[in-house]
Amino acid sequence: MTLRPVLRQLYRSESSLAAALRTLARRHAAEHEVHHVARDLARWSEEHLAELAATGERRGLRLGEAAPTGPHPLVARDDQLPGDGLLTDLRELHREIAGVSVDWELLAQGAQAARDSELLQFASRCHPRTLRQLRWSNAMLKVLSPQLLTS
C-alpha cells in the first residue's frame, strides 16, 4: 500500500503533538487557560492516534512501533523570549501543530490520488480539529504576547 509512509509520518507527528500538549499543560499549570485547554486538545490528538492505529491495523500496518524516539517535544531551542518559557513553548507547539496539519493534508491528497475513499474521509474528519488546534496556539500567542513582550 503506497500510503504507508504518510500514515507512519502522521502517526509520529501526532504522537509528538499529543506529548507536546501534555508537556505544555504540565509546564504551565499556573497559566490556567493554557493548562486546561491544552489537555482538552491533547485528547483530540490521542483520539486521532487511536483511530490511526486502528486504520493501520486494518491495513496490516503496526503504527504503534512508529512512535517518536527523537528529542522530547518542546525542548526549547531558542529561549530568548520573556514569559517563563510560555511564548517559546507556544511558538514551538504552533510549529508542531502546523507539521501535523501538513501531514493530514498529505494523507488527504494521497488518498485522493489513490482513490482511497476510506482514508480520504478519515483525513477530512480529523484535519479540521488539527486546524482548530493551530488556530488556538496562534490565538494564545497573539493574545499573550503584547503583555509579555513589553513588561
Binding site: E33, V37, D40, L41, R132, Q133, R135, W136, A139
Partner: peptide, 8 residues
C-alpha cells in the same frame, strides 16, 4: 470564537 478552544 471557537466555542471549545476559545480561539477568536
Amino acid at each position: 470564537k471557537d466555542l471549545v478552544t476559545g480561539a477568536p
